[in-house]
Design a protein around this nucleic acid. Structure first.
Lengths: 193, 193
DNA sequence: GCAAATTAATGATTTATTCAAG
DNA sequence: CTTGAATAAATCATTAATTTGC
């Protein structure tokens, strides 16, 4: 009977300031806010599948404004979302249909072999590569706007709505691109990171 | 066409000070020295299967004395070695031989429910509660000895340590929300924060 | 209306598979 | 051929929805 003894989830409290309000929230697991999910989803729709370390960092930073978040959450989110989208697709079509739908920019198609192995090795300590991302598509993503907006709110409101609106506004241009489109515009959107 | 755009493995050169000597070594992949392998193997033989973050850190530090190494290398090594040993076993005996040989202290017995789930990847930002890990498996291994030895060399130590320390520091706060720790590859990637 | 019980979603880990460097 | 590195699949575990009985 689960005697294991080991306390599995020593879930304690942590200063989980979700915007400066309530403290002492459970450390259980990340519980994304709607804004966070929205942004992540948008990025996914835009074609981002396996964010690099830098990307994860930036995303995490952005999202941290909307609520508590860690880098790992972003990483996991993409892992899961990607996997489950694929799963969903598979379920729909029993046939082993090769949906090349991934639209993963960071994935190199290998001719002979099927795609495998992808994201850059994110090294923590050593910066092996200095591969500059040439693509500067980021311009498409008005993150700067968000940043700007955020500045306005830094002190005051942790009002969810306000933030959401700001966010929405900021991303309005973006939403036109990836909204419901089945095929994201690949290239360059993600390189903003 | 692997041209996909973003270069996946931007492997360049890095100041791979292998003890302070040669710089500009390829960052290709970790090439363990015999001492390193020996120590790892010994640890494995001693029953260490899934080292915790702290363990990895210590091991990494130790091994860094014998040559360049990163935490992730240690992590991967155990992953691979564990997997391949199992594979080997399976191949030998078709029967599903109980590989209880693990002697993995950090693994909770699966009673009713299998409780795996181990370490929460660490993040620098949030510190979950501090549930100290009860397992002190490391005691089994004479790391202290090596550590002592290394102490003599600390002075001349490479900058690698600095980084490692930063890393360590970052992780120190990461406590175990869960009883056990394991530690996902990701944390390595994300820990750069 | 509400809270315990149940189910559905999904966050977090582990394991298996694969690629490629040496 | 060996094995480090990395991802994707499978799995576990927890939280939110929801159902249900009162």
């Amino acid at each position: 009977m689960s005697s294991g003894g080991s306390t599995i989830k020593g879930r304690g409290l942590c200063n989980n300031n979700n915007g400066g309000g309530t403290a002492g929230t459970k450390c259980g697991r990340w519980n994304p806010t709607v804004e966070q999910v929205k942004l992540l989803t948008d990025l996914f729709k835009a074609g981002l599948r396996t964010p690099s370390t830098d990307q994860i960092q930036k995303i995490s930073m952005e999202l941290s404004f909307y609520g508590k978040i860690e880098s790992k959450n972003v990483f996991y989110w993409f892992q899961n979302h990607k996997a489950r989208e694929r799963q969903k697709r598979r379920r729909i079509s029993t046939v082993d249909f090769d949906h090349r739908q991934d639209t993963d920019l960071s994935r190199p198609h290998r001719d002979n072999i099927r795609r495998r192995h992808q994201s850059p090795p994110k090294d923590i300590f050593e910066v092996c590569n200095v591969e500059e991302k040439v693509i500067e598509t980021l311009q498409l993503f008005p993150l700067s706007k968000v940043e700007r907006v955020r500045a306005n709110f830094t002190a005051a409101s942790h009002n969810e709505y306000t933030r959401e609106q700001a966010y929405t506004t900021a991303f309005s241009t973006f939403s036109t691109c990836g909204a419901e489109m089945e095929h994201p515009p690949l290239d360059l959107r993600l390189s903003f990171l």
